[in-house]
Design a protein around this nucleic acid. Structure first.
Length: 469
DNA sequence: AGGTGTTTATCCGAAA
DNA sequence: TTTCGGATAAACACCT
């Protein structure tokens, strides 16, 4: 989220924007060097520029740069070998006093709203979860999303299956400990999902298997709108906030990108964002994931075996029969020498430049430089039954910005997973924000309803211009 | 042998 | 209630 891209709203509280920008600027130098080094690693044809949208979209996420500062290894600073494929558990808290057989992945368990006991009470959300070190919680991303994330992180036109494995295991501790059957699911997804196409390995190219990339034609299909949407769950917005929203979302100009500085900033990246959202729609990413669901697994226990999955045709290797299966480490052993080389860029880097530019250009504030946060600070917000306290408002403003962006581009159904992925990609491991991200748990709002609300409050529908299609 | 890729089958939850 | 999509499981073939 641009409005928060240069500072951490949780930790900085009322720190002025200028100060935040300075912080971001201080990181720019390091960032630039990182980007250049990573770019130099990418020799392959970059014809799959369609992946660029994913990178660009990433800047949309929430609170970031500070985390990038503290976790520079992720998505950009991590170098080949530095992630210790030979010692994948090094520094991995999950490896200490943790069972190595966490059970089978149960992503769906986290993406099913109905199985979220106690989540609201605790108010945790994925933004609080350090997926890189927390082996307890399965990332709430669909396999397709994970694959795309890996592809995006690689910044290459094509990547190998092992690279996808590597990226996932490097960035999601859960998969380092989980039953390796998730890899089967990855392969299954690649083969089955039409969005992914296989690029055969050249005769002179060593290594196993081929490469994978996103089907370019898929993008065309997206642009034609030939994708399905799912209905989003209802949202409850505090009437007090409605009044605020009416003021906030009130169009100040007829042009989609000619309003406030904040809105301008949002428009800059709108196309790539829209593309990703549409991609998520078409890939069927789990847009119904409820951030609260993660909380159910944050209570300290491994995901409950759902008894899901196909009927066993053969003896199962799972622990259902009481036999624990030592998970295989899916790091370096999966990679050939050349693939190890490919892995480097998989750590990825993100468009901090654009991020910073947005900040420096004053897009992070409303007209007059007034931070948007006070607009909501005084009010309460209830989303999905979760109360959002005023102290959490700063992040809420970020989401309001995002919502506004969505509104401007005619995105009626907000893809929650995309939001989460966005937040993750930008702020993958917000360790320092533990306990302060409650708002994000409740920030996924049904845009249709939100905008309907706006309409009912007098908002100008003419601003709902789809600038992309 | 083990990784890769494809295919089939099934279950489950959410959306329609 | 039906449909759909994601996840899981497994069999099988191919390749290195």
């Amino acid at each position: 989220m641009l409005s928060l891209s240069c500072a951490d709203p949780w930790t900085e509280g009322s720190v002025g924007l200028e100060e935040k920008v300075v912080t971001a600027a201080a990181q720019a130098e390091e960032r630039d060097s990182v980007n250049s080094s990573i770019s130099s690693c990418s020799n392959l044809d970059d014809s799959l520029t369609s992946l660029q949208w994913l990178q660009e979209f990433c800047i949309l996420g929430a609170n970031v740069p500070q985390h990038a500062h503290h976790q520079p290894h992720l998505f950009g600073h991590q170098q080949i070998g530095s992630d210790a494929p030979s010692s994948p558990l090094a520094g991995d808290p999950a490896s200490i006093g943790m069972p190595l057989t966490p059970g089978k992945p149960t992503a769906a368990a986290y993406s099913r709203r109905q199985s979220l006991p106690g989540i609201v009470a605790h108010g945790h959300c994925p933004d609080e979860v350090d997926y890189k070190t927390n082996a307890h919680i399965k990332p709430p991303y669909s396999y397709a999303t994970l694959i795309c994330m890996a592809m995006q992180a690689s910044k290459k036109s094509k990547i190998t299956l092992s690279c996808i494995y590597k990226w996932i295991t490097d960035n999601f501790c859960y998969y380092r400990h989980a039953d390796p059957t998730w890899q089967n699911s990855i392969r299954h997804n690649l083969s089955l999902n039409k969005c992914f196409i296989k690029v055969p390995r050249q005769k002179d190219e060593p290594g196993k298997g081929g490469f994978w990339k996103i089907d370019p034609q898929y993008a065309e299909r997206l642009l034609s709108g030939a994708y399905k949407k799912r209905r989003m769950p209802p949202v409850q917005i505090n009437p007090a906030l409605q009044n605020r929203l009416r003021l906030t979302l009130q169009p100040q100009s007829t042009g989609p990108c000619s309003t406030t500085g904040v809105q301008e900033g949002l428009c800059i990246k709108s196309e790539s964002q829209q593309f990703l959202w549409e991609f998520e729609e078409a890939t069927g990413a789990d847009r119904c994931w409820d951030p609260h669901l993660a909380e159910g697994t944050m209570l300290g226990s491994w995901p409950v075996v759902r008894g899901r999955g196909g009927k066993k045709r053969k003896h199962s290797l799972s622990s259902k029969n009481g036999v624990t299966k030592v998970p295989r480490r899916s790091s370096s052993p999966l990679l050939s020498v050349d693939e190890q080389k490919e892995i480097g860029p998989l750590k990825g880097d993100f468009d901090w430049d654009a991020l910073l530019d947005s900040a420096l250009s004053g897009e992070l504030s409303l007209e007059g430089g007034e931070p948007l946060s006070p607009i909501i600070k005084e009010e309460d917000l209830t989303v999905w039954g979760t109360h959002i306290s005023p102290i959490e408002a700063p992040a809420g403003t970020a989401d309001i910005h995002m919502l506004e962006t969505q509104r401007r581009h005619g995105v009626s159904n907000f893809d929650e997973e995309t939001i989460l992925a966005t937040a993750f990609l930008e702020n993958p491991w917000p360790e320092e924000e533990q306990g302060r991200s409650d708002f994000l748990c409740s920030s996924t709002v049904n845009l249709d309803q939100l905008f309907d609300l706006e309409d009912s409050l007098g908002g100008d529908p003419s601003t709902r211009i789809d600038t992309l299609l």
